[in-house]
């Protein structure tokens, strides 16, 4: 298992049991800062649950989770709420608020968490949207009026609004056509690069092997609540673990 000094995220012996089911089984896992780490696995392996723990939305049955040096269990509700500004998340279907325009969606976190004036918010929103490739005429469109790809861009813009240090991508390319996949991959890479000076750790949860292997620095394989393999990408491709081999062939 890879371990790092001063990781962005560190899980130590995290176990999560739902009734009879053990979803996370004494999991220990570190994520290095400023890198792109992908977590692969079958459906139902526990990826979403792991994500929720990292976000602090779920508490483990046992074990500790440290993010950016802070033990999540020590944070009170209010502190936790503030702490979430450090995360940005892009959902599989972008999860845009359907009654808000693209502009309003991106401006939402700014409105909620900053005291910026309307003009300042508008400026920042424009910046963000343009940086993800959304043209100005689409600013006032509702999500229902945008294509899937555009929605994802807007979702990314929204996730980046508060300049987070950790970007989480939930199945970013799953189910997309090759061209859009390439587009999304580029977005992820650009985002990681552009924010490097302020620190940007990217974590991707996926089961799109090909796309992720192209852009990741590190890859971990999650199977039934346990990390089976965790290696730098090139080594991962040549892993001798049977499960990994099977997965890579698909």
């Amino acid at each position: 298992m890879l371990t790092f000094q001063n990781p962005a995220i560190s899980l130590k012996n995290v176990t999560k049991i739902f009734g009879e089911q053990t979803v996370l089984d004494s999991l220990s896992f570190d994520v290095e800062r400023n890198k792109i780490t992908t977590i692969l696995g079958f459906s139902g392996a526990g990826k979403s649950t792991l994500l929720k723990h990292i976000l602090g939305i779920m508490q483990p049955t046992s074990g500790t989770i440290e993010v950016l040096g802070k033990d999540l269990s020590t944070l009170g509700k209010v502190e936790l709420r503030e702490f979430r500004r450090n995360y940005g998340m892009l959902f599989q279907y972008a999860a845009l608020f359907d009654s808000f325009t693209a502009e309003e969606n991106v401006g939402f976190p700014l409105k909620e968490f900053t005291k910026l004036s309307k003009e300042d918010i508008h400026k920042r929103v424009s910046e963000l949207l343009i940086s993800v490739g959304i043209k100005e005429e689409s600013f006032t469109r509702l999500p229902s009026e945008l294509s899937g790809g555009m929605r994802k861009r807007v979702g990314l813009a929204r996730a980046l609004a508060l300049s987070p240090h950790i970007m989480l991508y939930d199945e970013p390319t799953t189910g997309l056509d090759p061209i859009t996949t390439k587009m999304v991959n580029n977005l992820i890479v650009d985002t990681a690069k552009n924010h490097k000076d302020r620190e940007m750790t990217s974590v991707i949860i996926s089961h799109d092997v090909r796309a992720t292997l192209e852009i990741s620095d590190y890859v971990a394989f999650l199977d039934r609540g346990k990390i089976v393999e965790y290696l730098p990408v090139d080594e991962f491709k040549n892993s001798d673990k049977e499960l990994v081999q099977e997965f890579l062939k698909l």
Partner: peptide, 18 residues
């Protein structure tokens, strides 16, 4: 309900909004 199904509620939670 439809917000829940399209993960918008998760989006809120992730942003730290209850």
């Amino acid at each position: 309900g439809s917000m829940k199904v399209t993960e918008q509620i998760d989006a809120l939670e992730v942003m730290g909004i209850n």
